[in-house]
């Protein structure tokens, strides 16, 4: 059983506030206003950068050390997942197809 701690709960409350802030960002104030141009353009690039920064190390490293073998279930699962996404444009299928590759390699071959 995993333990609960107050710090994690505080982070969760913080993340909830982040959800509220970002989802209602431009209608919190009654006044109409604009972001500076660089920030508007930055909005185009930050979400995908944040996802990639989290995802890539989780696929090609073990605790930050680049994996030195191709016998890693995550590589094949991620390649399959991305391939299926660009084929069918469906996030759910991405997960299903990726796990269909991951589980046999991970559990069957121990990769």
């Amino acid at each position: 059983m995993n333990g609960t701690d107050l710090w994690t709960l505080a982070v969760i409350v913080g993340l909830a506030l982040v959800t509220v802030l970002t989802r209602s960002f431009f209608f919190i104030s009654n006044k109409s206003w604009q972001l500076p141009h660089w920030a508007q353009r930055g909005l185009q690039y930050a979400p995908i950068a944040a996802l990639s920064a989290v995802v890539v190390p989780e696929i090609i490293t073990v605790q930050g050390t680049l994996i030195s073998t191709w016998q890693d279930a995550r590589l094949f699962a991620a390649a399959m997942g991305a391939g299926v996404y660009f084929w069918r444009r469906d996030v759910l299928l991405t997960i299903v197809a990726g796990m269909a590759v991951y589980l046999p390699l991970h559990l069957g071959l121990g990769w």
Binding site: I48, L51, S52, V54, V55, E58, I59, R74, A77, A78, G81, A82, Y85, F86, D90, V91, L92, T94, I95, G98, M99, Y102
Partner: peptide
């Protein structure tokens, strides 16, 4: 992680 990868794509 696969889910995040899908959203990323």
């Amino acid at each position: 992680i696969l889910c995040l990868l899908g959203i990323q794509c």
